[in-house]
Design a protein around this nucleic acid. Structure first.
Lengths: 194, 194, 194, 194
DNA sequence: CATGAATGAGAGTTCATTCAT
DNA sequence: GATGAATGAACTCTCATTCAT
């Protein structure tokens, strides 16, 4: 596969990503992607053999970029609290974005395929996020920014709240204020006065 | 519609409920329901016109029963903390049940139809649960069982954590221990020492 | 499946039979059969799930009728030689018929699927024909119509010659005279002077 | 067309031959041949325009080599009977070989294309084989090895039996013993005592 | 000459929905 | 009311064939 092919492959994945963001996972057919990419039916099959495969690849792309969210948040002089707040604000932005997330498609995908619960991308992302938040809280505790007995558990709780917000955003809808309140609640439970 | 019809309608809904629990929402076809009910294709259409409609009715049934969870928890001499703990344990049991919940189907349904976020069954259930928990916490605060600044927010937080656990149970999988730790975390943040 | 369904099933098989006679096996698609029957795409799938299945059923029908060829040949006063000659003439007629045989389709079918050689319809038909011819020759030998050392082998040889003629008729083409000569040769080798 | 081209053409034909032996005719696609030859899709089209053409060319190659079977059989001191027996044994070997013959592919090819019956390679091969066998029998008759009224007809009969065996080998399966018995039957009908 | 990405026609299959009985 | 055969739109997937490089 030449350079051009790699380009096209990437182009297809990026286009498919938009389609998944708009329609979720299940409603997307190979035809949808073919049309969005403006290529031929057979052409798509040269690169991918199913929507499943395409979605998994999109997810991989996504997950690589996800790691950057933290990296972006970390600046030299920022305190742990600053970084955590920045991260939570990032998450807020993302979970309030309408039709601009793969959240729904991802959930649908994991529902449809009854994938191994132990080893899947989503799980790895979750666990890795927990670990990073944990480190952040530990750093904050050392700096006396945070107060916390069990940093690991606090990190996990934050992630569950975020997941709860995320799914509610997709189903029952939530406002910016609701998210803000949750963020404040989280921070308060870490002993941050604001 | 005669008595017999009402009976049959109910029979269909109950049978369909089982099908949705097994397969989620999207993967269920009219054919599946027809076969599960052992009625004729045309027969089903006499009562319902789509899987959507059937699922909504199933959800209505469900939501009427859901209110009983709390009622069951409340006994005369129970303290607020007792009731809250009982409720959380109920939730734990439910969210760990495999293929015995409409959770997945419900999420799928709400993903698929981009329903009004403001007024839907799920939303009403959520809000009503928040209110009940809030009342419970307030009662607990008055009894000095709980310590809490903002009972409404605490209640909301609990619900988001539960939602987070619920979705995670369906996608990345969670263990009984994970749920226990979250329950403890919630109780601790209410000032309960255990 | 009601009476009507059985009728329709039969109708489809008979129509499909004609299609197979015209086009062989491989070139026939479900669409061809749908069009020949003038039914809907989905309609055909109610009765059969593949051209394979349809062809096998056609073959079964055929094989039931094939047994009648002999029965038809046998009349009360006919001698063994008469019956054998009648049978060979029947075979001649059949193998010279253009596009009015399933021969080609049958061969194609057995080529395509690499079916068990031991137990298949074709094999059963062949063996049963050998047995009947053998009986016939034995009867002829007893009547001093035929002369033959090994009736079983003679019967088998007749069948192989017929198979050879059949396949040649489909590939390189043969004339009526060629078949006649082979029939005479067979009869002569059984000691029949004509 | 340069030397190199001729070489490549031949290489393609020989490779394609193997593919046809494995899969018959109809199941072979241009893609199969391209992959077996490890050349480019477009490249194949520079030499041949269809599987039909390729198969015909393979058949031509084959037919040139087929003539050698007899030449090989003929040694100086061999009697007619020896040569005939050798030839029949050759044929036996060939028709019992699994997946190592173009037989099936050839039949499929002639089924698919409804080619002129009068003038085709298969026909020429058949006629030429008949002629050679005829000559052989005539020689045998002169040497008093064989007894035969109509040598041409005997030769033709042999070929039809062989064709019958060949097709049966591909469809209903035959054993070595069955072929042996047919060979003995043929020889006996030529008056050879063995 | 040679490449291999791209095309698009067409085969197979499923399912919501209708309608004569 | 109830039945279930029938319909046809929509999807998946494959392959011969072309054509820019």
């Amino acid at each position: 596969m030449g350079d051009k092919s790699i380009q096209k492959r990437k182009y297809i994945l990026e286009t498919a990503r938009k389609v998944f963001m708009e329609k979720g996972f299940k409603r997307v057919t190979m035809k949808d992607i073919v049309e969005a990419c403006d290529i031929s039916r057979g052409g798509l099959y040269l690169y991918f053999e199913s929507t499943d495969q395409i979605f998994l690849e999109v997810l991989k792309m996504e997950s690589q970029e996800a790691d950057d969210v933290f990296s972006d948040s970390i600046t030299e002089d920022a305190t742990a609290a600053d970084i955590l707040i920045l991260f939570l604000k990032e998450q807020k932005k993302e979970l309030l974005r309408k039709n601009n997330t793969l959240t729904q498609a991802t959930y649908e995908f994991y529902f449809e395929k009854e994938l191994p619960k132990k080893d899947n991308i989503l799980r790895r992302q979750f666990d890795s996020a927990v670990k990073i938040i944990e480190k952040l809280i530990e750093a904050g505790v050392e700096n006396d920014e945070f107060f916390c007995d069990d940093c690991k558990e606090a990190a996990r709780n934050i992630m569950f709240v975020l997941e709860g917000l995320r799914i509610c955003a997709q189903t029952i809808g939530i406002t910016s204020e609701v998210v803000d309140r949750e963020i404040l609640y989280i921070l308060k439970s870490l002993g941050v006065e604001d």
